[in-house]
Amino acid sequence: MHQTFDAALGINLLHANQAEADHNRAHFDEWGISCLNVMSSPGAGKTVLLERTLAALSNQLKIAVIEGDMTTDLDAQRLRQYGVPVIAINTGRSCHLDAKMVAGGIHRLEQEYNPADFELVLVENVGNLVCPAEFEVGEHAKVALLSITEGEDKPLKYPVMFQEADCLLVTKMDLAPHLDIDVQRIVANVRQMNPDCTIIPVSAKTGAGLDSWFEWLRSQIHYTQSLQKQL
């Protein structure tokens, strides 16, 4: 004979991931590292943005990259040319990085380098506008990219990503003259659900807007460092 019982849990479905993400963030805080989670659909220009960023900033800031890629090492190879540690995480068939995978990356950073030497860890997530928005990895801020070739309606269709973003880079602006795209409309669509997001139009090809992006990046580092001093 059986009896049925109820256990009220009331816990978040992503509880396990969240706990691991908080753990990662505690490590970053301890080492004085700002961590940014860089997300977009495939082909929006995450890797080239990181290339430009490393080229411009790697001699001023101590940067490491954690690179999520489904099956290949190609993006990591591109980024290693800039002389910074690039820890490649093969996510296999998983379409996003989760906190546990990033914990593995942090562990390697700890083994191979002195993590306290670093100021910034850039996490390049798997190209996907859906799941990465739900799986925190321990970042201090989320950066989303949307290329203008993707269309104005993407923030409306993938609202969670754009609602979660602290900074949105509207990429491939150099293509604007060739497209029927209204960038103001992209901005308005994002503003409907995220009025506080910093929105920066950029072109990795021409370099337009990149200085604003670097400025935002530096502001994140100072913000994390001032928080750390309060600890």
Binding site: F5, A7, A8, G10, Q163, M193, N194
Partner: peptide, 28 residues
């Protein structure tokens, strides 16, 4: 997503972001 009356952005979500395991039923 903005307010249909005044067009203010959607800032305060009261419901719809839940991803929660409410309860488990089990037998013994």
């Amino acid at each position: 997503y903005a307010c249909p009356d005044c067009n203010s952005p959607m800032e305060d979500i009261r419901s719809g972001r839940e991803l929660k395991i409410d309860r488990l039923e089990y037998e013994t």
